[in-house]
Amino acid sequence: MTPQEAALAVCGIIAVYAAVRLAMEQDTLRKLPFLNVLSFAITGVIALILPHPLGIVAAAAYFVGSTLESNAIASTYVGGLDRRE
């Protein structure tokens, strides 16, 4: 195994682990940290599976999009959308 394959295997295993933990969590807001772990792992898989310069942009776009989604879900769940305290 090259280092790239070992890293890919670790990312895949952690993604499945995070999805299983997310499915078992009962509280809605406490699901979001597991979704964050999942998006970290998927970002790593995107960058590792195809090393191409546009891959950096794709990984960053996926990560920022996932973060924005978590932010909007959490903010809407407790009330106002995107309002600073």
């Binding site: 993604a15 999805a19 997310l22 809605t28 699901k31 979001l32 979704l35 999942l38 998006s39 998927i42 898989v45 995107i46 599976i49 195809l50 191409h52 546009l54 891959g55 942009v57 794709a58 776009a61 996926y62 996932s66 989604e69 978590s70 879900i73 809407t76 769940y77």
Partner: peptide
């Protein structure tokens, strides 16, 4: 609950992304 449905959709989109990238369609992935 609709919020929990949206979080679960996030898992599904995360699973779809590597299949798009694996075929080299990085613009579609973005």
């Amino acid at each position: 609950d609709p919020f929990r449905k949206l979080i679960s959709l996030g898992i599904m989109i995360g699973g779809v992304m590597p299949f798009i990238v694996d075929r080299g369609l990085l613009d579609v992935a973005i």
